[in-house]
Design a protein around this nucleic acid. Structure first.
Length: 938
RNA sequence: GGGCGAAUAGCUCAGCGGAAGAGCGUCGCCCUUACAAGGCGGUGGUCGCAGGUUCGAACCCUGCUUCGCCUACCA
């Protein structure tokens, strides 16, 4: 067969990638059959938000998942990667509300619940598949026919089932407790959705007059809440205030009488004045205090974050901030204000809206977390689920052992409505798997709970709800538990913890055996990527490229500040060149060393684009030289020991290196060391295959122009072997690299001549493995020696600024017969690679005016330079080497002269040191000879 | 306040008990017909500081310093 294929010098991903994506999808290669008789391997993709767009964090996590899935699939596992999308309750809710306000100046209440939901679904149907399309571009081999949505019918059913079951078991309940209220979104949010940070504030002292004489001064950072005070508390052991406990104070601005109580609310009696105001309705600590002391609870802040009755009418309607200023002013006027000082106040803000969270006591639905968490702790302790990196285990365990109940109700509309019905007539509460209309006890109409569930409730069921639960499906049996979960450390608590709890509870088994937590991708300075900063790297821009104008227009449209625009102009003056999904994927893998942060930049991706291009050109070279190659014949030759023995040393060497690379990649992937795996391939391909093997192969591939049909048989056979190894190594390397860079490898693989029985796509071939038949230490040693000699010759020439193209004569003195034979065998290669014609001898006399170097202990390279020699320079260089020898010998002697070293060192270490010392001594002697020769010249 | 992690070449990072490594940068030489998005060579490090364990420490232990990232109801 003939395979002269003209390929462009530069690889063009934009032409190649869509073609193979279509091919894979059309052939259903991403789909796994749950009934297949193979070892299952499953991963569930963390479902991205339906509002989302693929960002670099997704790209990282999903690339690692795809590497694992493609790798296992090629190892003949039944590899299934579950795709899906999350309904992102609050994000969509806010989006639709905002749209409504902008286009129709309406609120959701104006629209009504049903119409609001209709619009939300309309939006979802139109825009909800965007991120899936982007995932496809990245080449992610997700099992698309299985794709799910957290609000599809099956998920809804799973959510209902889970809720009702937990309710029946007493693990879901409704109760009035202190919650975090987001006054902007007007919903409760969980503790996790609150970001607490110290913000500058003040600590005010307020003087409360005690009925019957005297005053008591309290300290607070929230003076406006004094309008809702129902007590003043002092520490029970504080002698200063013992006498006033039980008395009443008259609350300024309101005139209400409230008691002074002794309570342990103050952790430290010495705080401030030793007395604090107690506002049970608006502070978690005060709430607890109120319960302990049976205090009234006066809510003076409403759901919009404004003051309300029973606060005095003057303040009603004011925002909290305004009320604070007004109260302080009025207190001062009333002479009730004490000292005021600047103070750092820890302030909770809603992650979603940024609004200051108001703690309030409200009726909400809760999941009783402790018993569920206990099982998760037990499972991790027992090694059923393992965290990678391991350090995250402690974080998880800490959280789980101190877990608090999970508030799951939300006052929003887009989401799973809570399946609880109330009878206003008789007070019955029913929780049901099916919708209810009439009360079971009094037959009156029922009212369904208005609230919906926290988005994370359905996410917690995801690893099994996607497989059909609560039905006992075949898919569930095959793919649960998942082998791995890959996600970001930021959602360990939100998601991982809850999947663990629900998985163990409903399935009786952990949802995944390994939790691999990815790094955070930052910009090159280590700063978090943010549109506001202008340092975002968008995966799609990397794939397709983006002009500077496009980048700037988009940033402007997104409302980025001037500083961000400036940053973009500075960092990417020419925009971004199209680099393809492969380059991005390979970059992410190489940078993923296991450290907590990955600093990414366009330059980093560009380096790997160069690697892809290098690979492309190596393949071009091979394809240009495979005329007349017969893959079946070569395969037959490789299959027999005699055939393998007929290979040349270079061939045995590269095959040995190749299988070592395959072994290293396998080991690295087993341990989730993506960077090591990618780097192994990078170095094998570039350093071993391109820099050495291809160069060594070239002479054998050449067909003399005048040879015609009359190429001598030995030469033709040799050519065929070299062609075979070129093709074989490339083909195998494509398999190794495929999980990381699926597109370019498929493109090249398809073009390579290969035995006909292989499958129709690289992605369903077998992954390479450590293969003892190709291990060849002798060939490795020989090639290492040849490389060292070539390197030394190049170094000598470079030292004297001889053009690397200039052919020189060089004397190589090698006392060892075997090594000399190696050099004889590679003399032509050395001449070609170092442009140095070697004269190989066992020993030789001093050559005046020559530059000399010593390789190891006994190999000398002598480059005659005649008058060109720079004696001082050469002397200095060799003396530097001698000094190195001396230093090394001294260090080894120190060890060897220490009896304890001889007595205690591990096996072989002492001998190794002795051998090394002998080498160094010999090397030094050779170097000194060279110095003497130099001296003879001057 | 508590926890975790990091500190190694100019930069980004591997190495985690027995001779200091890679990529990028930098400086030379080469357009050697696969690739100039390339080839070859060089330069560059008391492995944060101070103790300790060990025959031997970048690596293990202790303390300190400086940076990250989590986490927390000090009014």
């Amino acid at each position: 067969m003939t395979t002269t294929t003209a390929l462009p010098k530069q690889y063009d991903p934009s032409e190649v990638e869509p073609r193979w994506l279509r091919f894979w999808l059309e052939n259903d290669f991403f789909h796994a059959d749950e009934a297949a008789a193979k070892v299952p391997y499953s991963i569930t993709l963390p479902p991205p938000n339906v509002t989302g767009s693929l960002h670099i964090g997704h790209a990282l996590g999903s690339t690692m998942q795809d590497v694992l899935i493609r790798w296992r699939r090629m190892q003949d596992h039944n590899a299934m990667w579950m795709p899906g999308i999350d309904h992102a309750s609050i994000a969509v809710h806010v989006l639709i509300e905002r749209q409504l306000k902008r286009t129709e100046s309406k609120t959701r209440q104006d629209l009504g619940r049903d119409e609001f939901m209709r619009r939300a679904w309309e939006w979802k149907d139109k825009s909800g598949s965007r991120i899936s399309e982007q995932e496809k571009l990245m080449g992610f081999s997700l099992d698309w026919p299985r794709e799910r949505f957290t609000m599809d019918d099956k998920s809804n059913r799973a959510v209902r089932e889970a809720f009702v079951k937990l309710y029946e078991e007493g693990l879901i309940f409704r109760a009035k407790r202190m919650i975090n209220w987001d006054p902007a979104s007007e919903t409760v949010v969980s503790d996790l959705e609150v970001d607490t940070a110290d913000e500058p504030g003040k600590l005010w002292e307020i003087v409360y007059p005690i009925v019957g004489g005297g005053t008591i001064t309290v300290a607070t950072t929230r003076p406006e809440t004094m309008l809702g005070d129902t007590a003043v508390a002092v520490h029970p052991d504080d002698p200063r205030w013992a006498a006033v406990v039980g008395k009443q104070v008259e609350l300024p601005l309101t005139g209400r009488l409230i008691p002074i109580i002794a309570d342990g609310i103050l952790a430290k009696a010495e705080f401030g004045t030793g007395a604090v105001k107690v506002t049970p309705a608006h502070d978690p600590n005060d709430y607890e205090c109120g319960l302990r002391n049976h205090l009234d609870s006066l809510q003076v802040i409403d759901l919009k974050g404004r003051m309300c009755a029973p606060a005095p009418a003057k303040y009603v309607g004011m925002t909290v901030d305004k009320a604070r200023a007004a109260v302080v002013e009025d207190l001062e006027a009333a002479g009730a204000l004490g000292a005021v000082k600047d103070y750092k106040v820890p302030r909770g803000r809603s992650q979603r809206s940024g609004a200051v969270i108001e703690p309030m006591a409200m009726d909400q639905w809760w999941v009783k977390a402790a018993p569920l968490a206990a099982r998760a702790v037990e499972a991790v302790d027992g090694g059923k689920t393992r965290f990678v990196p391991e350090s995250h285990t402690k974080t998880f365990m800490n959280w789980m052992t101190n877990i608090r109940d999970w508030c799951i109700s939300r006052q929003l509309w887009w989401g799973h409505r809570i399946p609880a019905w109330y009878c206003d007539a008789c007070g019955t509460v029913e929780v049901s798997r099916t919708d209810l209309t009439a009360c079971r006890t009094c037959s009156k109409p029922l009212r369904q709970d208005d609230d919906i569930l926290d988005t994370w409730f359905s996410s917690a069921l995801w690893p099994f709800s996607t497989l059909g639960w609560p039905e006992q499906t075949r898919a569930l049996k095959t793919f649960y538990p998942n082998n791995v979960l890959v996600t970001g450390p930021d959602i360990i608590f939100f998601w991982v913890a809850r999947m663990m709890m629900f998985g163990l509870h409903f399935m009786g088994k952990v949802p995944f055996k390994v939790v691999y937590l990815t790094a955070i991708v930052t910009d090159e300075n280590g700063d978090k990527m943010s549109k506001m900063k202008g340092n975002v790297i968008d995966p799609l821009d990397i794939i397709h490229g983006a002009t500077i104008d496009k980048l700037l227009d988009r940033a402007t449209a997104e409302g980025a500040p001037d500083a961000a625009i400036k940053t973009i102009k500075k960092n990417l003056p020419k925009g971004i060149e199209a680099m393809g999904a492969d380059a991005l994927r390979f970059t992410l893998a190489r940078l993923n060393t296991g450290s907590a942060r990955i600093r990414l930049s366009v330059e980093r991706v560009d380096e790997n684009k160069k690697f892809i291009n290098k690979l492309w050109n190596a393949s071009r070279f091979a394809l240009m030289n495979l005329d007349g190659f017969d893959p079946e014949r070569f395969e037959a030759q490789l299959a027999t020991p005699a055939g393998r023995a007929a290979l040349g040393v270079s061939e045995r060497w590269i095959l040995s290196r190749l299988q070592a690379a395959a072994a290293d990649v396998d080991t690295a992937l087993e341990a989730f060391r993506f960077s090591d795996a990618a780097n192994t391939i990078y170095h094998f391909l570039w350093d071993s295959f391109c820099d050495w093997y291809i160069e060594l192969a070239k002479p054998s591939l050449q067909v003399p122009a005048d040879a015609g049909e009359a190429v001598e048989p030995a030469r033709a056979a040799r050519r065929h072997v070299v062609q075979g190894v070129l093709a074989y190594v490339l083909e195998t390397t494509m398999r190794l690299l495929h999980p990381f860079a699926p597109y370019v490898t498929e493109e090249i693989w398809q073009k390579l001549p290969k035995p006909p029985q292989l499958p129709g796509s690289l992605m369903i071939t077998k992954f390479p493995y450590r293969d003892a038949t190709f291990v060849d230490p002798a060939a490795e040693a020989e090639l290492q020696f040849v490389q060292d000699v070539v390197g030394a010759a190049r170094m000598l020439k470079a030292t004297y600024n001889l053009p690397s193209s200039q052919l020189v004569d060089i004397e190589v003195r090698v006392p060892n017969d075997g090594k000399r034979a190696t050099l004889e065998r590679f003399a032509d290669a050395i001449e070609k690679l170092a442009r140095s014609r070697p004269k190989i001898v066992a020993s030789g006399a001093a050559v005046p005016g020559a530059a000399t170097t010593v390789l190891g202990s006994d190999v000398e390279l002598v480059l005659p330079l005649g008058g060109l020699i720079d004696v001082p320079k050469e002397t200095a260089r060799i003396q530097k080497d001698v000094a190195k020898c001396d230093k090394e010998i001294a260090a080894i002697d120190k060890r060897l002269e220490n009896p304890e070293f001889i007595a205690n060192a591990k096996d072989g270490v002492v001998d190794e040191n002795r051998a090394r010392r002998a080498d160094e001594v010999a090397r030094k002697a050779a170097l000194q000879d060279a110095l003497r020769t130099l001296g003879a010249v001057s």
